[in-house]
Design a protein around this nucleic acid. Structure first.
Lengths: 196, 196
DNA sequence: GTCTATAGCGGGATAGAC
DNA sequence: GTCTATCCCGCTATAGAC
């Protein structure tokens, strides 16, 4: 089964938004990468903004699904969070959602910005639940502030990408992730039993 | 004493790079904001890339100076890091250096990328020194990994901006910062004496 | 030093043929 | 559905007058 023109257009838009952002992406570039002509694109989509909206929503969905796999997997809260943070990532490409946060046209449009806000809010909420669960099970100490710690974890990820791209190296990303895991680790109870 | 045309051009470039990034900033926009004509701009600078380089270097200098004030100030290591993280910031505008990290043309140019890499490397190094000092004074526990913790702190800052912009609210930034300070706080020794 | 004129190219979209 | 032609505008820079 072959991809339709619509699908190819959306996929090439997703790639270009990731690589070049919204202001850096032109309809012509989208068409060329998709191997589709002008007429076809404007037949299926109202324009650049319309295509971008579909592309961003799909990317946001993917990101949530990716996270959910690790966060709902087996293991202690700490292990699941580690698995999520250390999962295979194309670090130097950055986060396809986070990067749009720097795009003036995206942030100026409530419609385009909404999927970004929802994704990060969801992710933080999910991490909060995992941490809360770890605390309820006695794996994590009582006085851990789960909600702000969840925000910190998401921020480390996003900031890690920034540092990696500035250095053109994965190292600062990994250091930042290991750093936050080290800090969190001190909040585990030594006699922690996993949720059996 | 009035600002010269050069100065106004560099300042307007700094503002526009902050607001719209490199790909989103045009020479015309720079000239208009500076109140300077085409000829004048191309007389003083070779072009957009040249102006951007001068602007980015100046911004990077400023950022280091701002950080140094807090990090070399009075107080314990924890207090100085808190002061730096919680200093007044225009959070929703984001980091003028960090945002360039998402710009394809900036990252593709070693010359333009260099000031970003240097700034973050310097900042991390400086935070490492402060943490190390805190450990040496007995304020922080021995087994704290100062280098990766420093990377984490820088990442939280950069990621905090991303979250804030996605939500169009300062809250997630503050939560992330308080979260990492909370985590770090657990590594302080209860009988910590500041460096008197 | 600063101005205006001009150039070539690409962005973003519309129109109408096929 | 897809193609080509066309449009208007802005980007980035150069040229040469003042």
């Amino acid at each position: 089964m072959v991809m339709t023109a619509q699908d190819r257009l959306v996929e090439s838009t997703r790639e270009l938004l990731w690589e070049r952002g919204y202001v850096g992406t032109s309809p012509k570039a989208i068409q060329q990468r998709a191997g589709v002509g002008q007429g076809s694109m404007y037949h299926h989509f109202a324009g650049k903004a319309d295509l971008a909206l579909v592309a961003v929503r799909r990317t946001a969905e993917d990101m949530r699904a990716q996270a959910e796999v690790r966060l709902s997997g087996p293991g202690t809260a700490f292990e699941r969070i580690s698995a999520y943070l250390l999962r295979e990532r194309d670090v130097l490409r950055g986060c396809p959602i986070g990067r749009l946060t720097q795009d003036p046209d995206v942030v100026a449009s409530p419609t385009l910005r909404a999927p970004l806000a929802e994704t990060f809010a969801w992710l933080r909420g999910r991490l909060t639940e995992v941490l809360e669960e770890g605390r309820a099970r006695g794996e994590l100490v009582e006085d851990l502030d789960v909600s702000s710690t969840a925000a910190t974890i998401v921020a480390v990820l996003q900031g890690g990408y920034v540092l990696a791209r500035s250095a053109e190296s994965v190292d600062p990303f990994l250091d930042a992730v290991h750093g936050v895991l080290g800090l969190l680790s001190a909040h585990r109870r030594p006699d922690a039993a996993d949720g059996s």
